[in-house]
């Protein structure tokens, strides 16, 4: 059995179209899966379903299964787009990071604080011992995301779920966090579920990519295969509409129209 297998997963919140419909995916231990989608694609709902964090009111069909039972917070670490959502503003960051290891791994507070300082140092936070007693608001957005990452990894999880961890940051900070994630996954042999709206970031961090649109899986497979020879028009349209440093200066940009047709208007 795969490390993670999602079979026929459907999620609906109240009436209206389902947030997710008929999603089937598998992920092996140590692999990195990038889930690529725009707003309304269901990508965050998929991450929440895998973490067991769906609200009780969600109507769920299908299954999410792991080869071995995993406990959220201990075996599964999560970072979100907004680090303020995962950090408690009134607790020092040392308490928050250490608590994870105390609760889930039975460490002493003393040992857990020493470990928290080592983690902060690894995340590139200056003067990590002094930083332990500071509060989240004393750090920049990029630093807070590094701190949230330290808390997510403090119980030594096997799976890291990162839901748009860089989309509230500027590109320079994003570049640093993506590099850090890449190193951490290698060092710790983590399995990674990376949720993103950016096809280039998906290609940088994923071994596999799953493309979601409107709650449905458009296609999934190895990054090189999907991005070189996309099977679905939507993936091809996302590739065509990408902006990068090769974009022609002063030219009109390709637009995505009905049925994912790509149109380049005349300027």
């Amino acid at each position: 059995m795969s490390f993670l297998s999602v079979r026929g997963l459907g999620v609906a919140y109240g009436r209206g179209p389902p947030a997710l419909a008929d999603i089937t995916l598998a992920l092996d231990a140590g692999q990195r899966l990038a889930v690529l989608g725009e707003s309304g694609s269901g990508k965050s709902t998929l991450a929440m379903a895998i973490c067991g964090l769906l609200p009780p009111t969600a109507a769920v069909s299908g299954t999410v299964g792991f080869a071995a039972p995993l406990l959220l917070g201990r075996d599964v670490g999560v970072v979100f787009q907004d680090p303020n959502g995962s950090l408690n503003p009134v607790l020092s960051i040392g308490e928050q990071i250490a608590e994870v290891a105390v609760v889930h791994r039975g460490r002493s507070w003393r040992a857990a604080r020493a470990e928290a300082a080592r983690l902060l140092d690894r995340m590139g936070i200056a003067q990590p011992h002094a930083a332990l007693s500071r509060h989240p608001h004393e750090f920049s957005g990029g630093q807070r995301q590094r701190i949230a990452l330290a808390a997510a990894l403090a119980a030594d999880p096997v799976l890291l779920v990162a839901d748009e961890p860089t989309s509230a940051l500027d590109t320079v900070m994003q570049h640093q966090i993506v590099g850090l994630l890449d190193e951490l996954v290698r060092e710790r042999g983590l399995t990674l579920l990376f949720i993103t709206h950016d096809i280039a970031l998906a290609s940088m961090l994923g071994d596999e990519v799953a493309v979601l649109h409107g709650g449905r899986l458009m296609e999934a497979g190895p990054v090189a295969q999907v991005l070189r020879r996309p099977a679905h028009r939507y993936t091809a349209a996302l590739l065509a509409a990408r902006l990068d440093l090769d974009t022609r200066i002063g030219a009109r940009l390709p637009e995505i129209g009905a049925d994912f047709a790509v149109v380049v208007p005349h300027g």
Partner: peptide, 30 residues
Amino acid sequence: VSVRNAVLNLLLDLQQRSGLAYLLIAHDLA
């Protein structure tokens, strides 16, 4: 992403048509 380029093209068209000047604040060099 699927609506971004259409908004950027719109800004380019409006400038071409009515001679607007833009001061664009952005962190993304693309």
